[in-house]
Amino acid sequence: MASIMQCLYFSAGRCRSCSQMTRPYQQQLQGKAEHCAQLLAGHEQLRFLPPQPSVESGFRNKAKMVISGTSENPTIGILDADGHGVDLRHCGVCDPALRAAFPVIERFIRQLGLIPYDVPRRKGELKHVIITLAPSGQLMVRWVLRTKKHFVALRDSLPLFSKALPAAKVVSVNFLPEHKAVLEGSEEIVLSAAQTLPMELNGIGMHLRPQGFFQTNTPIAAALYRQAASWVRQLQPASVWDLYCGVGGFA
């Protein structure tokens, strides 16, 4: 009998982000493959390879967490329909290394008195914390603020933060002054000496900038790169264009 991933947040109705949670994974995979084939049915020359499966839990290398609540009792997760925080720090799709960073994030919110942004009231400062995990185990931690009110506190606390979370290779502050449903603004200040997070896959070294994109499932990204490399070896193209693909892993 096919197994179904269990999630207490989903069962309790606190989070419905994984909308296909009640379907066995193989059914999910087959359904997506069939949908893709339907969308491209007009291209009869295409040949579809079997879909590449993933592990069902702990696969995300990036956590985009909304900070809500209060400085003394922050929530790290998402917002409900009314704009109030739902704590998801034990989310099963996040890599355990990401989940291990959340207690440190919470401790620094309390210690520095960072004021979580209240979406319904449009008041507060700290909107999001975005954490990315490299294959090496190193982390990029990005604090997203409404204004520069807490910037000095975060900058001056960097030595303590680095000691509390040694894996944090890159630490930055992003500013999102507008009240809108986006994760980050255009202005970013890197606090750490390292400006980029090394992301090595299949023996190829890449560097992720704070506002750059990298596939959120590392083993699947590695499989995608291997498949692309196989096609290139077969076709021997004279040139390659890598467009809208983030760090340039396909190239």
Rank of each mutant, 00 (worst) to 15 (best):
T216H: 03
A12Q: 12
V173M: 05
N217I: 11
I109E: 07
R233E: 09
I109Q: 14
Q27C: 07
V240I: 10
R110V: 04
R47S: 05
Q211E: 10
C91T: 00
M1N: 15
Q227W: 14
M199P: 02
L40C: 09
D242N: 10
K169S: 07
I204Y: 10
V119N: 04
S186M: 14
R209N: 10
R89A: 06
A97Q: 00
R122H: 14
A167G: 04
R107L: 00
W143V: 01
R107I: 06
D242V: 15
D118K: 12
A37G: 05
S192H: 04
P120C: 13
C245V: 10
P120L: 10
G85N: 00
S3V: 03
W143G: 15
Y9K: 05
V190Q: 10
T196K: 08
I105F: 02
P53L: 09
G13L: 15
F213Q: 06
A168I: 01
R226I: 07
L197E: 08
Q111E: 08
G205I: 15
S172E: 13
G124F: 15
L133I: 09
Q6S: 12
L114C: 11
A251H: 11
A181C: 02
K148R: 08
Q211V: 04
K180P: 03
L46Y: 02
L154T: 09
G113I: 05
A41T: 00
I220K: 07
S54P: 02
Q236I: 03
C7E: 11
Q30V: 06
M21P: 07
I4V: 06
M21N: 15
L46G: 00
R122T: 11
E72F: 01
S57N: 04
G113D: 15
Q38V: 01
S172Y: 14
Q27V: 05
P53I: 07
I131W: 03
S71L: 05
V170F: 06
T70S: 01
G58A: 01
M199R: 05
L183Q: 06
Q211D: 04
F59H: 02
I76T: 04
